[in-house]
Write a protein that binds this DNA or RNA. Structure first.
Length: 510
RNA sequence: GGGGCCGUAGCUCAGUGGUCAGAGCAGGGGACUCAUAAUCCCUGGGUCGUGGGUUCGAUCCCCACCGGCCCUACCA
């Protein structure tokens, strides 16, 4: 039994929660649930990022103060996650006092270690981006994104000596080959460091919606610099050091590929500067694409897919919570991009859920209910399905351990398929009632019991419902998986009945 | 401009320096009838983006190009 500390990024409150956020959060939730099921002491953290100029502006526009504004917008994320059955242990907001305290302690440590210095930051500013570019980063003096002329501006800032960490970061990568997975993403981070690091400006004087710099009033920390530290806030850095000892650095961040730089370069350097070991593992995931394009507000503005059409709640209304969770976890391997489409989710629903899993439960329930004696339903010791089950369990366990939840599901569906095939071979519907029939069906029931445990991190409600239909007591997650994912434990507590279809087929004939 | 990723069957995606390159779905044929017209078995189909190079041999390594995309100081 180990410890498992897993985080999602904290989401920027100005966004409305959409499928992209849900993709990351649901996958993280499944991982957290698997580790709880494995008996690990688990802490699963998500939250919202609430500082910065854009938030302050949005508050003004809506006629409220920033805190009131973020209270409202942060709540949308919490509601979305509750609706998706996300089992977060902590929901952090960067406007909480505990975060201010940790950020100030952490950055003071960096300051005292000599990695911060004050300088005038002058650069080329793009009004549209609200951001600075260096001459090299610009397109011959034009904004590379908006293709508009950049204007020269300057501001006095505190700088973080990121450039001092090139060698140490490369060394860290060298010594911790599993620091960033998958490997292609690790290579990206390494080549970025090898390309040379500049110091970064980490404070602003032009805005005040942020965390004050304790040793220099009038400055607030730049949002990204404050946001990353949330991972430490939640485990009590600077407030409860024993807790930090427990959870850090053996921790995992699940992030999207666009923020590799912050998590795999800035963040470990910040930790080193503060005298703390960097997080041990960053798992990078790709994006869900719609028609080959990233899910973004820009697309909505351009008349592409409207984000509101693919808000999580729209999909849960149509498909249900667990089927959406299944799709988000199953469809693409973490680390790769994947295509998101209505046709795709419908196909997954009908084939994997309705035809394979739902129908299996239905056909077994019917035969058992009609022809079997509950008391003699005891799985065989050495039977063909046992081999299949043990193989699937082994594959699934290893997949979860390497952050490959989609493969864990793939292995599980291998067992579902094997069970359907097994039924075809034995054709229990042709058999007379008796011991032989009971033996065949007990193996099928045992297989379904194991499936319900295997799917529980992804479809907790469905797993519970299957468990109930099998007449089992409690829930599939009551025992650690190394005790429950063992062939032969099924015992019926009474007669089985068929029940309504778990996943009514979806017709798309209009 | 600089850095990086991707381009494999109709579709969505796996995959490896070397026996006939894989899965699911879709398509075709058959079986079965317990089941949500579900299930099971068999099956067709790919110049592994293009052009070079390294190699005894490359889809997988290197280079160029074409196409798609990302990062370049606050969109998972």
């Amino acid at each position: 039994m180990g410890r498992f500390y897993l985080t999602t990024p904290i989401y920027y409150v100005n966004d409305a929660p959409h499928v992209g956020h849900a993709y990351c959060t649901v996958n993280a939730d499944a991982l957290a649930r698997w580790h709880r099921l494995s008996g690990d002491s688990t802490k699963f953290l998500t939250g919202t990022d609430e500082h910065g100029q854009k938030v302050a502006d949005a508050a003004v526009k809506n006629g409220v103060d920033p805190q009131t504004w973020t209270d409202q917008t942060s709540r949308r994320f919490r509601e979305a996650w509750d609706a998706l059955d996300i089992s977060y242990d902590d929901f952090i907001r960067t406007t909480e006092p505990r975060h201010t305290e940790t950020v100030q302690k952490f950055l003071t440590a960096i300051y005292e270690n000599g990695y911060l210095y004050k300088d005038v930051y002058s650069g080329l500013y793009c009004v549209s981006c609200e951001d600075y570019f260096t001459l090299e980063a610009s397109d011959e003096g034009q904004c590379p994104i908006h293709h508009r002329p950049l204007t020269e501006m300057s501001e006095e800032n505190w700088f973080f000596r990121l450039s001092a960490f090139e060698d140490r970061l490369l060394e860290y990568y060298e010594e911790h080959p599993g620091f960033v997975t998958p490997e292609t993403k690790r290579n990206e981070a390494v080549s970025f460091v090898k390309g040379g690091l500049r110091d970064i400006s980490i404070t602003r004087t032009s805005i005040d919606w942020g965390i004050p710099v304790p040793w220099d009033p009038g400055h607030v920390f730049y949002v990204w610099y404050d946001a990353l530290i949330n991972y430490l806030t939640a485990i009590g850095y600077g407030r409860d050091d024993d807790q930090v000892e427990e959870w850090w650095p053996a921790s995992h961040h699940l992030i999207g590929k666009e923020i590799i730089r912050f998590h795999c370069v800035w963040w470990p350097a910040m930790c080193m500067a503060a005298g703390l070991d960097p997080v041990s593992h960053v798992q990078v995931h790709g994006w869900l694409l719609v028609g080959g394009q990233k899910l973004s507000k820009t697309m909505a503005a351009e008349g592409g897919v409207r984000l509101t059409d693919i808000a999580p709640v729209v999909l849960t209304d149509e498909f249900g919570v667990d089927p959406l969770r299944y799709y988000l976890v199953r469809e693409t391997a973490l680390g790769n991009d994947g295509e998101f489409s209505h046709e795709g989710i419908t196909a997954r629903y009908n084939t994997d859920l309705a035809n394979n899993l739902g129908n299996l439960v239905a056909r077994v329930s019917t035969v058992v209910g009609a022809k079997c004696d509950a008391q003699s339903l005891i799985p065989g010791r050495d039977t063909e399905l046992r081999t299949e089950a043990e193989r699937a369990i082994d594959l699934a366990r290893r997949a979860w351990e390497r952050f490959a939840p989609s493969q864990a599901l793939e292995a599980t569906w291998g067992l579902i398929g094997a069970t359907n095939a097994y039924l075809e071979r034995h054709a229990p519907w042709k058999m007379e009632s008796g011991k032989e029939l009971d033996a065949v069906m007990a193996d099928a029931l045992e297989s379904i019991r194991l499936v319900s445990i295997l799917i529980s991190p992804v479809m907790p409600s469905v797993a519970q419902e299957i468990w109930r239909r099998l007449t089992l007591e409690g829930s599939p997650t009551d025992s650690p998986q190394d005790e429950s994912l063992v062939w032969g434990l099924y015992r019926a507590r009474g007669p089985l009945s068929k029940g309504e279809p778990l996943f009514p087929r979806i017709r798309s004939d209009e």
